[in-house]
């Protein structure tokens, strides 16, 4: 039971980070970022592709990338188990790199379509994300592809049986920081102009805003945040396996969460993430029981896809505003008006 709760909390934290970043782009800004998975993958790439190569070079390990990575990860894990500061240092280093790489990836991926309307924007973002995913998946030399590569255990100093809890706490801290950051950032004229862009881009163009710049900056920020989730995820699983960063899990599910919780409402998105992860983990955890109980002649994961697809359609149709509705942005001067002239 504790195991299940920890699992739920960990993935809750990850999905909070990614869905909040999507809420910034899509919920507030109206940018249909169907390439969300790309930014999470960027975080994984930073750890599996860059950190591993640095370690291989540092330790002077020879041989092919995948086996050299295993050895490097093993050696580094040994060091970290003696020296917690190095582990945390590596983590912070990777987060910083992921934020930079995520920002670059986000800005570049929207560049081709930054001037166009929503449909072209969504298609181009999805296509770029899919192609990068396919290349990283089939080419095992970049970051292990479908074989996967090991990465060091940055919390190796925590005794084995508590390590999962430590990772969960780490993930929850990251999620909390992201939440506080975005709440502060979006309850401002920036949040207001994003919503304006979502409602009518021509109008804000006519009122002096450079829509292209606004989109590029917002995508850079959103992707930088989501890349953090990628870093946390691969350290937790102590490996990078590219399949784990597919479009369903890291593009579609975040959209489902934002719609479920309430687009444009960060609290709603946190709530949405909780409900979603609870459902998903219960299905994952009890998949054999479900299969047995319902006499399914197939794996429960297919059922999960069908259920979440139907859920998304139902929300779109019957509750497009989500569980918690969007609220106006009340900056302090507006808030004081609420008292004087209600």
């Amino acid at each position: 039971m504790v195991e299940l709760i920890t699992l739920i909390l960990f993935f809750f934290a990850l999905y909070v980070i990614v869905s909040l970043s999507l809420n910034l782009e899509f919920g507030y800004g109206g940018i249909p970022n169907f390439g969300k998975a790309l930014s999470v993958l960027t975080g994984a790439l930073v750890v599996g592709g860059i950190l591993n190569r640095l370690l291989i070079w540092y330790f002077g390990i020879e041989g092919d990338f995948i086996s050299a990575s295993s050895l490097a990860a093993y050696r580094m894990t040994e060091i970290v188990s003696q020296n917690p500061l190095i582990g945390l240092g590596i983590f912070l280093f990777c987060v910083t790199m992921a934020v930079v790489a995520g920002a670059i990836a986000g800005a570049l991926s929207i560049l081709p379509s930054a001037k166009l309307k929503g449909d072209y924007l969504g298609v181009t973002l999805l296509a770029i994300s899919e192609v990068v995913y396919l290349i990283l998946f089939y080419n095992t030399e970049i970051v292990g592809g479908y074989y996967g590569v090991s990465v060091p255990d940055i919390l190796a100093f925590v005794p084995g049986e508590y390590r999962v809890y430590a990772y969960t706490v780490l993930a929850l801290i990251c999620a909390l920081l992201v939440y506080l950051f975005l709440e502060k950032l979006l309850n401002s004229p920036y949040g207001r102009i994003l919503r304006g862009h979502r409602e009518n881009e021509d109008l804000i163009k006519a009122f002096g805003r450079d829509v292209m710049k606004l989109r590029i900056k917002t995508m850079a920020l959103g992707s930088a945040i989501a890349a953090i989730a990628g870093v946390v995820f691969v350290f937790y699983s102590s490996s990078v396996v590219v399949n784990a960063f597919n479009r369903v899990e890291w593009t579609f599910y975040p959209f489902l969460i934002v719609l479920l919780g309430g687009k444009g409402n960060n609290k709603g998105v946190v709530l949405g993430a909780f409900i979603f992860v609870l459902l998903k983990m219960l299905i994952d955890f009890y998949k054999f029981d479900i299969k047995y109980l319902l006499h399914l002649p197939f794996e429960a994961v297919w059922l999960q896809y069908i259920v979440f697809g139907i859920l998304a359609l139902l929300i779109l149709c019957y509750k497009p505003e989500g569980i918690l509705k969007e609220e106006p942005i009340y900056t302090p001067p507006i808030k004081s008006r609420l008292k004087t002239n209600p």
């Binding site: 004229p189 920036y190 919503r195 304006g196 409602e199 969007e326 106006p328 008006r337």
Partner: peptide
């Protein structure tokens, strides 16, 4: 901007340093 308030609709007309 339909889902935004009347006040927000006016405020958004002017460029604002807080948008950065």
């Amino acid at each position: 901007l339909k889902s935004m308030t009347v006040l927000e609709n006016v405020l958004i007309g002017r460029k604002h340093s807080g948008e950065e």
